[in-house]
Structure formats: structure tokens, C-alpha cells
């Protein structure tokens, strides 16, 4: 009956090792502030480790003092010595440590704001997706949605705004979070270093589908980025038949540049099929998922403004999806 103490200890250490493994594995991945892929995130990760080391040192000193007081120092000390102890370790030392950490933290502020980036990207948060506009030389505006691409090694300035409630943009692998406030434009400069795919999220509760408001961030080699941006700037070259798309009112909310669809309520769909995810990071952008999304969006994303189109005749839905498939 029951495990022997030895066995229990073995199980316990196995559990610890396994638990530590899970913890450490959580430090990497596409959405981790501890696995920085950009300069700002690296500064913040460094700040975190310095703060953690400082907190660990304070903890060790306090626990050490408690152990010393309980185990070794059995005689009471004088009132005056007690007062001095409180003054030094309760007031002076914490003030000095806090001052050090505060100066170290404040030092980062100008670093995180500086630079005159060549690339400006306007991001507007709307319940529950991201309108993304690349502003190029000569104020050329290239609108896309729900997928951010950045060139590695170059600074990009994100100007952040919201049209409804307060949102917050956070790409932990690339930098700190910044609130997106209606009526105010905030600014965030990112300098991604390592190409790869990361994940950005809305970090301020904004409504029922807040947890479903994310976006993939693709950091690309600069040449690839430039080529991609040129392709994005081009109008759509739809291969399918746009009749069903337009007849069912899709163009009332969505723009497909170069066609009669010029709505601005929902995301720009000009190069929809070229994006990696669907519905603001909701699911991979596959033909099957696109069908589910169009037919049943209200169930997939509660609170979304787009109505579900599951009531359409299958042939009609097929035509719309074929048209979307051709928007590369």
C-alpha cells in the first residue's frame, strides 16, 4: 500500500525536472519577451534579468537575515542598535537599491524612443482586428490588414491609433507594449534583428473577442521585404468571378483594390490569399478555414461586425471562396 518514501522522492524529482523543462520551453517560441528578436526586446529582456537578479539578491538578504535572527542571534540587541538596523536595512538600503533600479530603467526610455526610421507603418486597432498601412516615400499608402511584415536590421516606426476602445499592441519578441487610444496617436519604434515569424497580440481587454485579436509578424531580409511591399502596392489581379462577391455585399465593407469593392469597414482583402493567417491570427489561412470563416464567422469570433454567410447557396459560397483564393 502506498509508495515508499524513496520512490516518492524519485517521483518528486522527476516531476520537478519535467516541470522545469516545461517552464524553460515556455521561454522560447514566437511570443516570448525572454527570447528577443529585436533591439528593443533585447533591452527589455536585459532589464528583466537585472531586475530579477536585484530582487533575488534582496530576497536572499532578507531571508538570510531572518534565518540568522532565528538560528544564530539568540540575544536581544539594544534599542539603539535595533533602531539603527531598521534605519539602515529598512530605509537607506531599499532607497539606494530602488534608486539604482529606477535610474537603470529610466536610462532605457530615450533608447526606446529615438531614431528617425525610414519606414512608417500606421496601425489602427478596431474591434477585433488590425488595419495596417505602410507609408512609403512621397506619402504612398499601402493598406493591408492583420499581418505585419518588417525588414530585419532596419528601424520601423509604428504609429498606433484606435477607432473604438482602448487596445494595446504587443509583440513580445520585438519590443514592449504600447497602448492604442482613441483620439491619440502613440508611437513605437521597433528594430527587429532576427528574421522569423513572431506573434503580436492585443494586450488590453477590448471586448468579447479580445483573446482572438492577434496577428503574425514576419521579419524578413530587407530585400525580400522590399519585393513584398512592391507586390502589396499592386492592385489585385483576381482570377475568379467577382460577381458573387459583389452581389452579396462583400464589397460594402471590404476593399479589393482595382475592383468595384471599395468598402472600408472591414479589412482590406486585396492580397488576402497571400497572408498566413485568417481573422486576425485566428486560424491558418487555408481554403477550408476560409470557408468556415465566411460561413460561420459569428461563432468563430464572438462580437465581430461581419455577419455569417452560411445561408448562401453552396454554389454562391463556392464562387466567393474561389474569388478570395485568387486574391494573391
Amino acid at each position: 500500500m502506498g509508495a515508499t518514501p524513496d520512490r516518492r522522492r524519485r517521483e518528486c524529482s522527476a516531476g520537478l525536472v519535467l516541470g522545469a523543462g516545461f517552464l524553460v520551453s515556455a521561454c522560447g517560441g514566437p511570443q516570448s519577451a525572454l527570447d528577443p528578436a529585436g533591439e528593443e526586446a533585447a533591452e527589455i529582456a536585459h532589464l528583466f534579468w537585472v531586475m530579477l537578479a536585484g530582487a533575488g539578491l534582496v530576497w536572499a538578504l532578507v531571508v538570510g537575515a531572518a534565518v540568522f535572527g532565528g538560528r544564530f542571534q539568540r540575544q536581544p540587541i539594544s534599542d539603539r542598535a535595533g533602531l539603527r538596523l531598521i534605519l539602515w536595512s529598512g530605509a537607506f538600503a531599499p532607497t539606494l537599491i530602488l534608486a539604482g533600479l529606477l535610474i537603470y530603467g529610466l536610462r532605457l526610455m530615450p533608447v526606446l524612443r529615438a531614431a528617425e526610421p525610414a519606414l512608417r507603418i500606421e496601425i489602427s486597432a478596431e474591434q477585433y482586428w488590425w488595419r495596417i498601412t505602410y507609408v512609403g516615400a512621397g506619402d504612398v499608402r499601402i493598406e493591408t490588414a492583420n499581418e505585419l511584415r518588417l525588414p530585419a536590421g532596419r528601424a520601423a516606426e509604428l504609429t498606433l491609433d484606435s477607432v473604438d476602445v482602448i487596445h494595446s499592441l504587443w509583440i513580445p519578441s520585438l519590443g514592449g507594449k504600447m497602448d492604442m487610444i482613441p483620439g491619440r496617436t502613440n508611437r513605437l519604434v521597433l528594430r527587429p534583428q532576427r528574421p522569423g515569424t513572431y506573434r503580436g497580440v492585443c494586450a488590453e481587454f477590448c471586448g468579447t473577442a479580445h483573446a482572438l485579436m492577434a496577428f503574425p509578424v514576419e521579419v524578413m531580409p530587407p530585400a525580400d521585404f522590399d519585393a513584398w511591399l512592391v507586390r502589396q502596392a499592386a492592385p489585385a489581379t483576381p482570377g475568379g468571378d467577382e460577381a458573387a462577391f459583389l452581389a452579396n455585399g462583400c464589397g460594402g465593407c471590404h476593399t479589393v483594390r482595382g475592383t468595384a469593392a471599395t468598402g472600408t469597414i472591414g479589412p482590406d482583402l486585396t492580397h488576402l490569399a497571400g497572408r498566413s493567417s485568417l481573422g486576425a491570427g485566428l486560424m491558418p489561412n487555408t481554403p477550408g478555414n476560409r470557408r468556415r470563416f465566411v460561413a460561420d464567422v459569428e461563432r468563430l469570433k464572438p462580437g465581430v461586425r461581419m455577419p455569417s454567410f452560411g445561408m448562401l447557396a453552396p454554389a454562391e459560397l463556392d464562387a466567393i471562396l474561389a474569388y478570395m483564393e485568387s486574391l494573391r
Binding site: T95, L98, A99, R107, M109, P110, T185, R187
Partner: peptide, 19 residues
Amino acid sequence: AVAVLFGALPALFITECVR
């Protein structure tokens, strides 16, 4: 005294107004 110093510290580091 500590609070006054801490409150003034940002002015030491922040050199620009940001939009």
C-alpha cells in the same frame, strides 16, 4: 526628499517630447 529626487529623475533622461 527621496520622492522629490525620484520625481525629478525622468527630466534627467528624457530629452524630447514625443508625439
